[in-house]
Amino acid sequence: TEDEKKIQELLKRANGDVSKAEKLAQSQGNEELARRLREYANK
């Protein structure tokens, strides 16, 4: 999905570090994506 692409892109930029990727999403003002990242990471 589009969200998964965004999540994978963020994870790439954060070198696979979920908490960093989450902070990136939040810094972009994207709380929804940050929440999805957390769920994605907890799979």
Score class of each variant (00 low, 15 high):
Q26P: 00
N42E: 11
Q8T: 08
L24D: 05
N15Q: 09
D3Q: 09
A14Q: 03
V18G: 03
D3E: 14
S19W: 13
A41Q: 07
G16L: 03
E32Y: 11
D17A: 02
K5I: 11
K12S: 09
L11A: 00
L37F: 04
N30M: 14
T1K: 11
A41R: 10
N42V: 10
N15V: 03
Q28D: 13
A34E: 02
K12I: 10
Q8R: 14
R35D: 05
G29L: 03
D3N: 09
R13C: 14
Q28E: 15
D17W: 05
Q8C: 15
A41H: 08
R36L: 15
L33E: 02
D17S: 06
S27R: 09
E9D: 10
N15A: 07
A34P: 00
N30F: 13
N42D: 09
Q8E: 09
K5Q: 12
L10R: 01
E4V: 11
Y40H: 04
L10M: 07
R35F: 08
R13P: 00
Y40N: 02
R13S: 08
N30R: 06
A25H: 01
A21P: 00
L37A: 02
R36N: 04
K43F: 11
E31P: 11
N30Q: 10
N15H: 11
L10F: 12
R36P: 00
Q26Y: 12
R35Y: 05
V18M: 06
A14C: 15
R35N: 06
L10W: 08
L37V: 10
L11H: 00
D3K: 05
T1V: 12
L11W: 02
N15S: 06
R36M: 15
E31C: 14
Q28V: 08
A14K: 01
S27Y: 08
L33A: 04
K6L: 15
R36A: 11
Q28I: 10
A14H: 05
L33M: 06
R36E: 04
E39N: 05
S19M: 12
Y40D: 01
A25V: 03
L10P: 00
A34R: 04
K12H: 09
L11F: 03
R38V: 06
A14P: 01
L37N: 00
G16M: 06
I7A: 04
A41D: 03
E9Q: 08
K43W: 11
V18D: 01
N15R: 10
K23V: 08
R36V: 06
E22K: 03
R36W: 07
K20H: 07
S27N: 09
R36K: 14
Q26T: 08
N42A: 14
N30A: 06
G16K: 02
L37S: 00
K5S: 10
K23P: 00
A25Q: 02
L37G: 00
E39V: 05
K23N: 06
G16N: 06
E2G: 09
S27F: 09
S27M: 14
K23G: 06
L24A: 04
A14I: 02
I7R: 01
G29W: 04
L24W: 13
E22A: 15
E4C: 15
R35A: 10
E2A: 11
E22R: 05
Y40E: 02
R35Q: 10
E39W: 06
L24P: 01
A21C: 09
E22L: 15
Q8M: 14
E4L: 14
K5D: 11
A21D: 00
A25I: 04
E4N: 10
A25D: 01
A34T: 03
R38A: 05
L33C: 06
A34K: 04
A25S: 02
K6D: 14
S19Q: 12
L10E: 01
A21G: 02
K20N: 05
G29I: 02
A14S: 08
L33F: 05
E9I: 07
E39Q: 07
K20C: 15
R13I: 13
E2T: 10
R13E: 10
L11N: 00
L33W: 05
A41P: 02
E9L: 08
N42G: 10
I7W: 05
G16Q: 04
Q28P: 02
K5A: 12
K12W: 11
R35H: 06
L10N: 00
K23F: 10
K5V: 11
Q8Y: 12
E9Y: 05
R38K: 06
D17N: 08
L37P: 00
R36T: 04
E32T: 07
E22I: 15
G16H: 05
R38S: 03
A14M: 08
S19Y: 14
R13D: 06
G29F: 06
R35L: 10
E2L: 12
Q28L: 14
E4D: 12
L37K: 00
R13M: 14
K12C: 15
E31I: 12
Q26G: 04
E9P: 00
K43A: 12
L24N: 03
E39L: 06
D3F: 15
E4P: 04
S19E: 13
R13Y: 09
N42P: 04
L10Q: 01
E22Q: 08
A34F: 04
V18Q: 03
K23S: 08
E9N: 07
A25W: 02
K6A: 14
Q28Y: 10
R36I: 12
K12F: 10
T1G: 11
A14W: 05
L33I: 06
A41E: 04
K5M: 12
E2R: 08
R35S: 06
Q26F: 12
V18W: 15
E22G: 04
N42K: 14
R13N: 07
E39G: 03
E39F: 05
K23M: 11
A21Q: 01
L33P: 00
A34G: 04
Q26E: 09
G29Q: 04
A34Q: 03
K6F: 13
Q8N: 07
K20G: 05
L11G: 00
Y40W: 13
E32F: 07
E4M: 13
A34V: 08
R36Q: 11
E2Y: 13
I7N: 01
Q26L: 15
Q28H: 07
I7H: 01
R35W: 07
E39S: 05
I7Y: 05
L11Y: 02
L10K: 00
L37R: 01
L24I: 11
